[in-house]
Amino acid sequence: MQKLRLAALALVCCSLGWAGSAVAEDGVSASAIKIGMANATSGPAAGLGLQLRAGAKAYLDKINAGGGVNGRAVALVSVDDAYDPLQSAAATRALIDTDKVFALFGYVGTPTSTAAVPIAAKAGVPYLFPFSGAEFLRNPVIPVVFNFRASYFDETEALVAHLTGALGVKKIALFIQDDEFGEAGKAGVVRALSKRRLSVALEARYSRNTIDIEAGLARLKSQAPEAVIFIGTYRPLASLVKKAGQAGVKARFLTVSFVGSSEFIKHAGDAGNGVVISQVMPSPDDGADPLVKLYHADVLPAARNYGSLEGYANAMILVEALRRCGREPTRAGLLRALEQLQMNAGGMPVAFSAQRHQGSDRVYLTQVKGGRVTPVDKL
């Protein structure tokens, strides 16, 4: 009788898809954990996605060469969304439904995240460390979304403080990408100016994935602001500063980290000199910084830039969270581990909680000088 009962139990277990152990989560096998990444590796924002992926891959390659995480390799499944929300949504569905990834990681952009996050949230799939400072990814807290980088509120506060404090500038214009990213940056600038009883002097816009900045440039020329805070990608900003110089516009230009410093410098040439860029990572050239020192050991000089450094740090945090999930990782366990995570990413403090899914609020002000990015406090 006892043997019959055990046999019946075994049949029930098999019918439920398990026999003596829990059913594995999607993306988890005996040898690997699959992580999905959809971002721009083609099109006018390709430099951002390629850099972020290169840095993450460098760190994951090192971890996998050393045996992986709790005996499993971390396998990065990378697809291109060309910085297009529709493509990002389709790629996200494919990564979840077809590739069966354990988590999503390293997306690039606010409009793309706007399209992808609802899909991830509905499926209960962690959406980790997007290359965006948008406030909707932070407040209110979305259970599956975790951000490492400082927010656009943090970055624009630093830019406005620099302009109004150290430089005494008050007539500040906005030149923004006409979408969710532009609106996210605008909200930060307006907030920072309001704290100082100031308002935006004028606003100009351009369409995403274009370099059509002519109409906005005409407004800058006619109204002569003292400074322009640009919220967009590297190619339109490069075009803007070139043509602004030719048109005799004397305004200072400032932008947030999403622009991609190295790609901006490559496209802007000498016209980029003087542009102030807020960063959320230390300088990738600063070998004295503990995080950067680790990064230099794994990333060749030609691939060193702010984007790949951020990808490298993101992967470091991901690996530590996966380690804390133990030998039978689950998505719920990963989210719990992240909410309890306090660590140093190569000396850079990272802290999450149930109430705060942003790990760092550090901002570093830099300025382009002689084709290189230099910390403002060292100019």
Rank of each mutant, 00 (worst) to 15 (best):
A173P: 11
A103G: 09
V160L: 03
F136A: 11
D97I: 10
I96F: 02
P126L: 11
Y127F: 15
T114G: 12
L76V: 11
P118S: 10
A150V: 09
Y107G: 09
F153G: 00
P85E: 03
F105M: 04
A134F: 01
A94I: 00
L167P: 00
K122T: 11
L174C: 14
V74Y: 08
A161G: 11
A173E: 10
I172S: 05
F175E: 12
F131D: 04
T114P: 05
A121C: 00
E155R: 09
R149Y: 05
A103T: 12
V101Q: 03
D80W: 00
R93H: 15
V117R: 01
H162T: 04
P126V: 12
L128I: 09
V108K: 00
N139F: 11
V169H: 07
D84H: 11
P130G: 01
A166V: 10
K170L: 07
V169A: 10
A123P: 02
E157A: 13
E135Y: 08
A115V: 12
A75N: 11
K100R: 15
V169R: 11
I172D: 04
A173R: 13
G168R: 03
Y83M: 05
A115M: 09
V145K: 05
P140A: 01
V79Y: 06
L159A: 01
K100Q: 15
I142E: 15
I119H: 07
R138M: 10
A134E: 03
V160M: 02
F146E: 00
T156E: 10
L174R: 13
T156C: 03
V160N: 03
F105K: 09
I172N: 04
A73M: 08
D84K: 14
V74F: 06
A103N: 10
A150P: 07
G168T: 04
F129L: 12
F102P: 04
V117D: 02
P85W: 04
T156A: 02
K122Q: 15
A82N: 01
A73K: 14
R72V: 05
P130F: 04
R149H: 07
L163P: 07
E135S: 14
L159K: 01
N139D: 14
